[in-house]
């Protein structure tokens, strides 16, 4: 359903036809998310409290986020332009992390 000329094309009602990709990818993603969460739980009970442990938890969180966005939210089947349009602005979050977390321990409550 691709409109050839601008007379036919109505932006508001345009809905591209999407083919089913089958369910195998869904089960694979479920397995990955479950395994990563179980790894989280195992590390929580076995690793000593260190900054490195927190680092692993954050990395695992980002990996889980990748699989949810790419597979469940279909982002890897979208055009790269759309993915960039949504994902690149998230770089601003890094600015906020630098501003609040990196400096937070000295400008906030306990000088």
């Amino acid at each position: 359903m691709h409109y050839k000329n601008s007379e036919e094309y109505e932006p508001i009602s345009y809905v591209p036809h999407v083919e089913s990709h089958g369910t195998s990818e869904i089960w694979r993603t479920l397995t990955i998310l479950t395994v990563l969460t179980v790894v989280d739980i195992i590390l929580y009970f076995t690793m000593p409290l260190t900054g490195f442990r927190n680092f692993i938890f954050i990395v695992l969180g980002i990996v889980k986020a990748y699989y949810i966005v790419a597979s469940f939210m279909h982002m890897k089947h979208e055009k790269i332009d759309l993915a960039a349009c949504i994902l690149v602005p998230l770089l601003f979050v890094l600015g906020l992390i630098a501003g609040l977390l990196y400096e937070g321990n000295f400008w906030l409550l306990n000088p």
Partner: peptide, 14 residues
Amino acid sequence: SGGRSPYNVSYGKL
């Protein structure tokens, strides 16, 4: 230049 959806998604999904 018009006549198509640049991201090939519907308005609502975008």
